[in-house]
């Protein structure tokens, strides 16, 4: 049994050596040499870890896809991500049934008499507040395009993400009250008011991170 394990560990270390970039071969040799000093019981685990290290080294230079896209792409991205939220926010704030257009007494007259009236009114106020993620997100996106300033405040970013999720939950729950509500309606709500704005906010948070130096592995592998 121990011969099998030793053989397997040796095979893994041989694969490790093949996997690492040529500039890192001496490190693969170091891992293999070290395994000769290990107790037998630890060799397989060690070899497996070395294989993981080799895979990491191989993958690092492959990470050429960068999320640091051109700032004008951010403008388009922000419009795509936040326009649905802006429209919904506008509708529930300044639209036909907007909470800032009508006073509360008119809501009482129209909605409070019905069994779900309180829920509907609460939902409208909730949308009017939660929907602010749309204009705020668009503002942050345009600010990045003009000033190259991402969303540095982690607290604000996470708050906006949480708000977007809350918005979607309320929207999804409310869709159960809609007559003939279909699942597709809830999925649209989820995509438009959660996936898109959350992706936009997370991207803006990512763009606020300091630019990392290119990994040495990438330089070595390229050379």
């Amino acid at each position: 049994m121990s011969r099998i394990i030793t053989g397997l560990a040796g095979a893994l270390l041989a694969v490790t050596r093949c996997l690492v970039p040529s500039a890192r071969r001496d490190w693969a040799d170091a891992m293999r040499a070290e395994s000769a000093y290990l107790p037998e019981s630890a060799r397989l685990r060690w070899a497996f870890g070395c294989l993981v290290a080799a895979i990491k080294l191989r993958l690092t230079p492959m990470q050429t896809g960068s999320l640091r896209v051109n700032r004008w792409i951010i403008v388009v991205e922000s419009l795509v991500c936040f326009t649905p939220s802006i429209l919904a926010w506008w509708f529930f704030t300044f639209g036909q049934l907007g909470v800032l257009v009508h006073d509360f007494s008119s809501y009482e007259r129209h909605f409070m008499g019905s069994p779900d009236g309180k829920w509907v009114v609460g939902m409208m106020y909730g949308f009017a507040v939660c929907g602010l993620i749309g204009p705020i997100g668009l503002f942050l996106g345009l600010r990045y395009a003009l000033l190259r300033r991402g969303l540095r405040s982690r607290v604000l970013g996470l708050f906006l993400v949480a708000t977007s999720i809350a918005w979607s939950l309320v929207g999804t729950l409310s869709s159960f009250w809609l007559p003939k509500a279909e699942l597709s309606v809830r999925w649209q709500i989820f995509i438009l008011f959660t996936i898109l704005p959350v992706a936009g906010i997370l991207h803006l948070m990512y763009l606020a991170r300091p630019v990392a130096e290119p990994p040495a592995d990438a330089r070595l592998a390229a050379g």
């Binding site: 490190w27 170091a30 060690w46 497996f48």
Partner: peptide, 22 residues
């Protein structure tokens, strides 16, 4: 040596060596 550092830090070789290289 690597194994000594691995034991002292309780890091597996898959984590230890990339850090050493860096």
């Amino acid at each position: 040596h690597g194994y000594e550092l691995s034991k002292a830090t309780e890091l597996l070789s898959g984590t230890l060596y990339p850090i050493l290289m860096r």
